[in-house]
Amino acid sequence: MSYGKQTLDDLRSPARELRSRIPEVYAGYAATHKAALAAGELDVATKELIALAIGVSKQCDGCIASHARGAARAGATEQQVAEALGVAILMNGGPSTVYGPRAMEAFLEFSEGPATPTG
């Protein structure tokens, strides 16, 4: 299954439609997104991992796909993603054991990592 890419593809058209109706809201959100994820004392990969874990806790498929892609683009490793998802499981319990694997799958998809562990 193509969880991450499929989720983003499914959201693309409806998001464009809504954005065309409320462009100021989306512009404000985009500015906040850019500022929040800019490198600072925390690097971009760390911020994307935090956002990914929050997406799992919030059970937000679009957030998971977007921040899995962001983490992959920022150079996060498979182990860093796994550990961030472990924190989400700690803080959110059972639901994160469902959404955490989805997040890992999306990250691997965007990072072009292995679909299953090797070794």
Rank of each mutant, 00 (worst) to 15 (best):
T77E: 03
A35D: 13
A72L: 02
I64S: 08
G55T: 04
L52A: 04
A31S: 10
Q79M: 09
H67K: 03
A35H: 13
Y29S: 10
G86S: 15
A65V: 01
V44K: 13
A68G: 09
A30N: 12
P95D: 11
R69T: 03
S57W: 03
E78F: 08
H33S: 07
Q79P: 07
D61H: 14
S57I: 06
V81F: 02
L85E: 05
A53M: 11
A38I: 04
T46E: 07
G40S: 13
D61L: 09
A53G: 15
K58V: 11
H33D: 11
G94N: 14
A72H: 04
H33C: 01
G40W: 08
M91I: 10
D43P: 04
A45S: 00
A103M: 12
P95F: 10
A31Q: 10
T32I: 11
H33V: 04
I89F: 07
G75D: 09
E105R: 13
G75H: 12
T32K: 05
P101F: 07
A103E: 10
S57Q: 08
N92C: 10
Q80N: 09
I89E: 09
I54Q: 07
S57A: 09
H33I: 00
E78V: 14
A39Y: 01
M104F: 14
I64T: 05
C63T: 09
A72N: 03
G62A: 03
K34Y: 02
H67V: 01
K58M: 12
A65L: 05
V44W: 06
E83G: 06
I54D: 02
I50L: 14
K34A: 15
L37T: 14
A39T: 11
A51I: 07
A72I: 02
K34T: 15
G93C: 00
A51H: 06
I64W: 09
A30Y: 05
A51L: 05
E41Q: 13
T46C: 07
I54S: 06
E105H: 07
S57D: 01
A31Y: 06
V44H: 10
E41F: 04
I50F: 09
A38Q: 13
A103Y: 08
G86C: 15
A51Y: 03
A71E: 00
Y29F: 15
E105Y: 02
L42K: 13
G70E: 01
E41T: 08
E105P: 02
S66F: 03
A38S: 14
A74D: 00
K58L: 15
I64H: 11
L85A: 04
A88R: 03
A36P: 11
G70K: 05
A65C: 05
I89Y: 04
A82H: 14
E78P: 07
A71F: 00
L52C: 03
E83C: 08
A53K: 14
E48N: 12
H33W: 07
G94F: 15
R69H: 06
R102S: 12
V98H: 07
C60F: 05
M91H: 10
D61R: 11
I89V: 15
G75N: 14
L52H: 08
Q80F: 06
E105K: 13
G40F: 02
C60D: 08
A103K: 12
A36S: 15
G62V: 02
K58Q: 14
H67C: 06
L49N: 09
Q79A: 15
V87Q: 01
R73F: 02
R102F: 11
E83V: 14
A74M: 00
G100R: 01
G94S: 13
K58A: 15
Q79Y: 03
A74W: 00
G70T: 02
L37Y: 15
